[in-house]
Computed example of a mutant assay.
Amino acid sequence: MLRIIVIASGLMALGQAAVGAASAEPKYGARTKTLPSIEIRSDEPEVDAFLNMTCVAPLTLDVRIGGEIPKGKGELDPDSLTLSDGTLTTKIIGASVKSPDIEMTGGTMVLSSLQAKGRAIAILTSGKTIEIKPATGASSKVTLGKPATDALKAFIAKCS
């Protein structure tokens, strides 16, 4: 990072010119971050996670959802899922991505960003059976169960 410190008032104009020239060039740094995340996976052997969620900012979650449900090609093609718990319904719009387990399962997921206080999160944490309808294909139903639902609620609370 370039910093210019002007010590004498006579150098002020020179210092300002140098700062102006230096600020015309973009300055970037890089750092590694460990972001809080959660994975919800069936206890069935050799299946994709149903949900991978990462807290990227307060109240903002990057979500990969639906690994157990065939959808999309996993080539960043536009994709969506409709979630319903019988009371609330919402559509998650994103891109089809390969699941982290693609080498074993061949699965894909929908990648999207969601708000922690949005309808999709309300459905995922409702404790009810969730109907998942891919953009194409048949609907599936998932019941996360109390331990997974409670863990998801706690994770989202930490992201808030």
Rank of each mutant, 00 (worst) to 15 (best):
T34L: 11
A18S: 06
S42H: 02
I130D: 01
D77R: 09
S99R: 07
E103K: 05
A13M: 10
V63T: 02
E68F: 03
I130R: 06
A122G: 10
V110Y: 08
K33L: 15
I93L: 08
T60P: 09
T87I: 15
D48N: 07
A57Y: 11
I93S: 15
G106R: 03
D48I: 04
S80C: 12
I92N: 05
E75H: 07
R64T: 11
T60V: 13
A21D: 08
C55N: 08
S126Q: 12
D79R: 01
S113P: 00
I38H: 02
L35R: 09
S113C: 06
M53F: 08
P58W: 10
S42Q: 02
A17P: 07
L76M: 13
G66V: 05
K71Q: 15
L76K: 14
P45M: 06
K117G: 02
A22H: 03
K117Y: 12
I123S: 04
V97M: 01
L83H: 04
D48W: 01
L76P: 03
S113T: 14
T60M: 14
T32F: 01
I92Y: 04
A13D: 08
G127C: 10
V56A: 05
A122F: 04
V63A: 04
G72R: 01
P36D: 12
G127K: 04
P58H: 11
T54A: 14
